[in-house]
Design a protein around this nucleic acid. Structure first.
Ligand SMILES: [Mn+2]
Ligand SMILES: [Mn+2]
Ligand SMILES: [Zn+2]
Ligand SMILES: [Zn+2]
Lengths: 136, 136
DNA sequence: AAGTAAATGCAAAAGTTTTGCATTCGTATG
DNA sequence: CATACGAATGCAAAACTTTTGCATTTACTT
């Protein structure tokens, strides 16, 4: 497995402490995180990275294709991994968001894109509803 | 086709002028709209509905299942229609967002939900990339 | 027509994201 | 290794978005 620094290097990014910290959090997270999430997560372990800097780092990561941001803005983001498709299961009750990968769905979406003359660089799906534990 | 007022009634909502205006805009739009979009759209035709009110109306519409809001917050929304699946094609270059319906994708996502023990009430997919006219 | 609860607008508060600028840090070069 | 330069960072403030409180108006019931 590639080191954090090597990943930054591969993507043509300077190897700074803040970037290593943010990238590490993203890589270890099992679910998408917002800028605030990342900031809070680091603060909790006394590794402070200014929130403004987190915004700027994520923008950079996105520019080079290291992460993707989701629908209607830039709130959620997660590492692209192995072309797996990103499906978010978002519970309206408790707020938990889980991430799923599904290769087949991915292919289906690519067909839709082709049909529409659209050229996707990434994609995200979200199911909104109730998670197992909140389903009364 | 049902009248605007009848739709409100069906969903147990009071039939107010502001709600009729907002609902009409949503129904006539071919793409998802933000609260600000709706407000601006109405303002342009001199039918002012306070932006705060637009927020509150959309929240109500959502409560009763008239619309759904998308990923990572509440920015985009569009009318649920005939169980068609909502696929957004979002151009990173020019910002245009188009909406697509795809029944098969919808079913596939339902299977994923079942597998994960998740109970979806709505869902949205987004393809991020370049639209036909921005593809250099 | 009157009464009541719900919806609206306005002003302000709270929260989020972006910007400007001075300082620090990373990398290339000699 | 020292230096020089551009890139990245932190802080403060501006800009923008969303929520809240409250007085007034509106829609529906009786
Ligand atoms: Mn995919
Ligand atoms: Mn669907
Ligand atoms: Zn839940
Ligand atoms: Zn475009």
């Amino acid at each position: 497995m590639k080191s954090i620094s090597a990943i930054l290097d591969t993507h043509g990014l300077r190897d700074t402490q803040s970037r290593r910290l943010v990238l590490k959090v993203l890589m270890q997270s099992k679910k998408p995180l917002s800028q605030k999430d990342i900031h809070a997560c680091l603060a909790k372990e006394d590794r402070v990275v200014n929130l403004v800097t987190v915004y700027r780092i994520l923008e950079k990561f996105r520019d080079v294709g290291l992460i993707h941001h989701s629908a209607g803005g830039v709130v959620f983001c997660s590492l692209e991994q192995a072309d797996g498709h990103h499906v978010l299961l978002s519970c309206e009750e408790c707020g938990v968001i889980e991430e799923y990968c599904d290769e087949e769905l991915c292919k289906h979406e690519d067909r839709i894109a082709k049909r529409a003359g659209f050229f996707p660089t990434s994609h995200v799906s979200e199911l909104i509803g109730r998670c197992a534990s909140c389903h009364f």
